[in-house]
Structures are given as C-alpha cells and as structure tokens.
Amino acid sequence: MAFSSEDIADHPNFVEALRGFAASLRQQFDESPRLSRMLASHQRWLLSQAAFALQLEYDPTQPGSGLTTTNLREIITSNNAASRNTVLNFLDQLLSYKFVRIVGDPTRRPKRYEATEISFQAMYQWVLTNLLVLDRLDGGDRVSRLQGRPDLLRQVQPQIARRACLDPRWLEPPPRVALFLWTEAGGLVMDELVRRAIEPLPGGDVYEIGRIDARQMAEHFMISRTHLQRLFRRAVEAGCLSWPDDTRKSCLLSRDFLREYCQWQAVKFSIVDHAYEKICGPVDLGKPEPLLGAVREA
C-alpha cells in the first residue's frame, strides 16, 4: 500500500533519506546546471512536470493534444501557479536551450512541442531518485522495477504531474518553505541546506551546517549574490537560519524549519508513491536497498 504523507514525514529514516535526495540533486545540478535550474523554483517545477506530462499524453487521434501553449496554460493558470506570459516565456526558454523541439510544421497553430533526449533522461533520473527515497523507507523494489521497465516512465510521470498540480498541500508550500521555493533557484539553496543538516546540536533545536559563503554559492548556482543575501536575511528574520556569533563562521538551521520542509516534501513523495503504485502495482517489500550508484548508472 502506498505511503501517506504522514507516514513518510514521521518515518525515522526520512530526514536521512531526504539528505541523500538533496545530495543527488546537487550532483545532477553539477552535471547539467542549466537544465537543473528549470526545476529550481516551485513554479518552474510545476511548469516542467506539467509540460512533460502533456507531451507524453499526446494522442495523434485527438487534435490539439500534447504539449502546446494552450494546454500548458490551462493546467497552470487553473491553479494560479503562473500567468499566461510566464507560460509563454517558459516554453521559449525550453526551446532556446534545446530542452524541447517543435514537432511538425512550425507555422501551424497551435505549435506542438516534445522533449528532447536530454530532458527525457533528466526526468527519468528525477523519478528514479524520488523512488529511491521511498525504497529506503520500506526496502521496496521501485527503482529496480522501473529500471527493468523504463518505458513505464511514460505512464508514471503524467500521474505524478496531474496529482501534484491538483493537491493544494503541494501547490502552496508553508510560508517559511515558500520563502525559498517561490524564489529563483531557491530549491537549489534549500537542497544545499538540507544536505548539510547531519546531526542536531546538543539540545536538539538546531543543526550546525557550516559556513555559508553567499558569494561562492551564488556563483555556483548562477544567481545574483544580492538576491541570495536578501533571501538569507529573510530566512534569518523568519527563524529558519541563525548565526551563533558575529564571526558567522558557522550557520545554524532551525530543526522546526527542517521539520516543516520535510512535511511538505512528504506530500510530494506520497504523490510519487501513489502514482507509481497505480501504474506498477503493489511494491515488493523487504528486498535489499538499491545503491545510489545504481540509479546514477541508469
């Protein structure tokens, strides 16, 4: 039976699994920075998932189906995730970076787009990485089954996208989480903070996450240093981050804030698990945990 979001959030191994997830996303960013940035804010995540699902759902017998500006706009604007102009700009960016291509006659309306190979591989990797977190919680075989039948991605991913775009708990992050996730590249910054949160300090209220070098982080993630510094100031004001002294040699991450983030991420992982189970059937539990390397080699 698929996990509920409460089951995931309360699982004793979830924080550790989420750290591994964040580390995997960081590696994927290092391997393909420009593509990773297309998922680096919640708005872009929603746009990317919806766009990929639409192109997988293309039916040649149904005129107007597939990834078109109109179809993407209908999904995204119906839940106020983005404006019409944002949808247009997003598709233009995907096209200019060659993450999608126009199919058929480019002068016909509506234009239909499809994902290029690099986008297919990135989405496949993303789904595997999410399934790995779930396998680490119950010893399931989700990763190995999808690796054995990669064609199932065409059915699983639209299920994930459709469910995610309809679940208000996922659409609207908690205010402190939204502070990061609704900003440019905020997802990359959040992953970096989670990746560093290894052990809470005595007392259990905070994690020591080391020195935060805003200049270096901004350069690595290709974002404005001013934007990043403003984000950190707002995070301190909201009680997400703090510094124990004026030297700022080490930053502290609030355990309550990490818990909020885990609860929100648990909604997404539950969506992924329910989508997987609907397409692939019940999970076979108790098998050895897949190695992270096995996912990277897929």
Rank of each mutant, 00 (worst) to 15 (best):
F232T: 00
Q159N: 12
E172I: 13
E184T: 12
S224V: 02
R230K: 09
C240K: 02
E219S: 10
V177K: 10
Q157W: 08
C165G: 07
V189A: 14
L228E: 00
R225T: 12
L188F: 06
R225P: 00
Q229S: 13
A178F: 00
V236N: 05
E208H: 04
R234Q: 10
F221G: 04
L188V: 03
R176H: 12
E172T: 15
A214L: 14
L228W: 04
I209D: 12
L231D: 03
R225L: 07
V177W: 03
W170P: 11
A218M: 06
E199P: 00
V194G: 12
R211K: 11
A214I: 08
R230G: 06
V236S: 08
A218Y: 01
E192L: 15
R211Q: 10
W182K: 15
L193Q: 08
R162W: 08
R196L: 06
I160V: 06
T183L: 12
L228I: 03
R234F: 00
M190V: 06
Y207V: 00
P173R: 04
R162H: 08
Y207C: 11
L201Y: 02
M217A: 10
I209K: 09
C240E: 01
I223H: 05
G203C: 03
D167I: 09
E192I: 04
I212R: 00
A235W: 08
G186F: 03
F180A: 10
R211C: 07
P175L: 03
P174R: 01
P175Y: 00
Q157L: 13
G203F: 01
P200G: 10
E237M: 10
A218Q: 01
A161E: 04
A235P: 06
E172C: 07
P175F: 01
A235C: 05
Y207R: 03
Y207M: 04
D205V: 12
E192H: 14
R163F: 01
Q229F: 02
